[in-house]
Design a protein around this nucleic acid. Structure first.
Lengths: 205, 205
DNA sequence: CCCATCTGGTCAGAGATCTTTTCAGAATCA
DNA sequence: TGATTCTGAAAAGATCTCTGACCAGATGGG
């Protein structure tokens, strides 16, 4: 059980490569056929990995779903955070517009990602559900903080933005889902504009 | 294979009764343990019905989920339609507020119903997904029509309300889900008020 | 009051998957 | 060549779904 080179790559590289291929196969299978169709066998077949190796990399089928979901949501979260930071000095409308644009661009521009994040990950098991809700809490917190800061800046009456944040997340995700289903029928800009309208009202000034 | 009375009830009554018990058991199991836990065996055990009888009443496990979902969503849809009709002459804000109140009262006041409608029914299979999206299209259509009529009444510029309708549905469902999880932390009135704020902006006048 | 008939539950099992472990053997390296 | 690495196939075990056979209790006609 040494770690000599094999196929021209080190043990770590080979291992990372397999994980990569498994994650890519998972995104593709879950995102196009659904989580139910992504059995361990199908996953391994698509990734060109043996079931034995699979269990060396992941604890089970569900772990792969969690990993893929993490990747997608983390990217979306980062895009949102970056956009908020990059537009900190801009007008509220432009800021929201660009942030929504960034978030949906990261999460929903790939139909498969959108399906995983908005559909396949919902209601799978208690564990996955905890995971999903933890992410959502994080985003709610981010929006709440941001809203409170904005309200403070324009010295608006302070109020609880939690409900507004939840509502916005629901709106964005639902639109992201629809948009990913028929991107041509619903330009991303129109979606961002609509959300901007709502968000401006929610964080009313 | 006659249909004589038995246990004091006709064949139809007995049959309807069993169906009733199965649906109640399904709402309870799916709404508290999740769809995955609602196996045919568990369903039959909870309903006091044999598996044989089960397959006389339903084509399979999925049919029960669809039936329960139909019940819940149809009730919500009816509550919404009724509220919209009953408030046709009222101010926009009051109208929206009461309609949201009615819809969420019907769908989300029972945690189990909310979980079935907002979580367990999502991403189960292509067939269930078609069902869910068909319902959503129906609600989108209702909101679109209503928005267009309102815009016409106040002679606002006509625009496409489809995106706004989708966003609102997402917001309402997400809040309904959260509300059902912790009703005490989030009074229904506050939820309705928030949605009213958003909807007024969405159907901007 | 009794029994042929109906009704519906219990039980067992065939058939299908899935998950996870184990094994044989091909490919690669030292 | 012999050890290492990894795939593909097969095996073991666990569920589930759905069907069919059997049985206890209820009913209504005689």
């Amino acid at each position: 059980m040494g770690d000599r080179r094999y196929g021209g790559r080190s043990a770590q590289q080979r291992r990372g490569d397999r994980r990569e291929r498994l994650l890519e196969a998972a995104l593709d299978l879950i995102g196009t056929q659904g989580y139910a169709a992504a059995t361990v066998g199908a996953l391994c077949g698509a990734a060109g990995v043996s079931t034995r190796t699979f269990y060396e990399e992941f604890g089970g089928r569900e772990d792969v779903l969690l990993a893929v979901h993490d990747q997608i949501t983390a990217a979306g979260f980062a895009a949102l955070t970056d956009a908020l930071a990059a537009t900190a000095s801009e007008q509220l409308h432009a800021r929201i517009h660009r942030s929504v644009h960034a978030y949906l661009g990261a999460v929903a521009s790939d139909t498969r990602q959108a399906r995983v994040a908005f559909v396949e990950v919902v209601g799978v098991s208690p564990r996955v559900e905890r995971h999903r809700l933890a992410w959502r809490r994080r985003i709610i917190g981010l929006l709440e903080t941001e809203a409170a800061a904005t309200a403070h800046r324009v010295s608006s009456p302070r109020r609880d933005f939690r409900i507004a944040a939840i509502a916005l997340i629901g709106a964005v995700n639902e639109l992201g889902h629809h948009w990913s289903l028929q991107p041509e029928a619903m330009p991303l800009d129109a979606v961002a504009t609509e959300i901007t309208r709502l968000a401006a009202a929610a964080f009313a000034l």
